Amino acid sequence: MTPDSEKREFTRVPITFDVRLTVDGRPIEGAQVKDLSMKGMLVLTDERFAVGTPCQAVISLVQGEVEIRTSGTVAATNPRGFGMEFATIDGLESYIHLRNLVIFNSPDVEKVEEELQAHAGIRRKT
């Protein structure tokens, strides 16, 4: 069996931020990002959702000035929260901020840069 880290397209980095989260059209209070990648994030919350539920997230790096805006779906659940898989990263600025967060917090910058080169945004190049 292959470990999860070997199946992932993008490196995950441990990072903690508050997140403004809307799941299935409903705002969720008190959610926090626990780890982040170019393709998704682990969200800590007491709320539970079914896999496939649509969600939108705004991670504020500098309140009201620097934000990462994403939309996607609940990809997995666990007792602490859920994994959100990004379908879109809204705007070039959001993409750049996300990329920089992952690069600057990764223990292996070269690996992250190789992953980014193999993708067009968050989609694998064909």
Rank of each mutant, 00 (worst) to 15 (best):
D24H: 10
N78H: 14
V62Y: 05
I28D: 07
R48Y: 05
K34P: 02
G52V: 06
R26N: 08
F86R: 04
A87Y: 00
R20I: 00
A57V: 05
V66W: 10
T45F: 01
T73L: 13
E67S: 08
G52W: 03
I28L: 05
L36E: 04
V74F: 05
T88L: 09
G83A: 15
I15G: 03
E47T: 08
T45P: 02
F82S: 03
L36M: 08
D18F: 06
V23F: 04
R48K: 15
T70H: 04
E67T: 10
R80I: 14
G40V: 09
G83E: 11
V58D: 04
A75I: 10
E85V: 11
A87W: 00
T22W: 09
N78M: 14
A57D: 03
A76W: 15
L61M: 07
T70P: 01
L44W: 08
I59F: 02
P54D: 05
D18I: 00
F17G: 04
E85L: 14
R20M: 07
S60W: 02
T45I: 07
R69L: 08
S37I: 07
V62E: 12
T77L: 12
I15V: 15
I28Q: 07
V62R: 10
Q56L: 08
N78E: 14
F49P: 03
T53W: 02
S71E: 14
G25D: 07
F82P: 01
E29D: 12
A57Y: 03
A50T: 12
S60L: 04
G81A: 10
K39D: 13
G30S: 10
T22F: 02
Q32H: 13
V58Y: 02
R48M: 10
D90Q: 11
D18C: 00
Q32P: 00
T53V: 09
N78C: 14
A50M: 11
G30F: 02
T77G: 15
D18R: 08
Q56Y: 00
L36C: 08
T53F: 06
D90H: 08
G40I: 07
F17D: 04
A87C: 10
T16H: 14
P79W: 08
T22E: 13
A76G: 13
K34T: 09
P54F: 01
P27I: 03
V43N: 01
G72Y: 03
I28F: 05
G72P: 05
G52E: 07
Q56P: 01
V23I: 12
Q56S: 14
P79Y: 09
V74W: 04
L61P: 04
L44I: 14
L42M: 15
V23H: 03
E29Q: 11
G40R: 05
V43P: 02
G40M: 09
S60M: 09
A87S: 15
T22R: 11
T70S: 12
T16M: 13
V66T: 02
F17K: 10
I59Q: 02
L44G: 10
F86P: 05
G25Y: 00
P79K: 12
G83F: 06
T22D: 10
V43Q: 04
G30A: 11
R69H: 11
T70F: 00
E29H: 03
G25K: 00
R20E: 13
